[in-house]
């Protein structure tokens, strides 16, 4: 994508992308929450979270977040390598 934007267009674009990024962040957050809920909360003999479940939940959040950060870094590197080789943008 080799497009030239003037200032007005650039501002409009930025504000749209910001909103999209915010929405994406929130979706990621909810995915994380639902994923860890699904994997760690399986006992419905009580209505409060058990300490065993809470431990699982916290480790799940930590581990998935670290995985996500690691994958983000790799994705960016790979994206950059593509761009350098003259492949397509992807960013």
């Amino acid at each position: 994508m080799n497009m030239n934007f003037n200032d007005t267009e650039q501002r409009e674009l930025n504000s749209r992308l910001e909103r999209k990024q915010m929405r994406e962040m929130l979706t990621t957050y909810q995915n994380l929450l639902q994923g860890c809920f699904d994997e760690c909360i399986n006992d419905f003999s009580t209505k409060s979270i058990q300490s065993r479940e809470e431990g699982c939940l916290m480790r799940c959040l930590d581990k998935r977040q670290k995985a996500s950060e690691r994958l983000t870094a790799r994705f960016q590197e790979l994206n950059q390598q593509m761009a350098d080789k003259g492949g397509a943008p992807g960013q």
């Binding site: 990621t28 699982c56 998935r64």
Partner: peptide, 26 residues
């Protein structure tokens, strides 16, 4: 691009992380 990353993220998380979560570190 965001969608591609989000799919990569969900697929690789599923393929690489065991679901017992015995530790919070990778």
């Amino acid at each position: 691009v965001m969608d591609a990353f989000s799919r990569l993220n969900s697929s690789c998380t599923r393929k690489c992380l065991p679901t017992d979560y015995r530790e919070g570190e990778l």
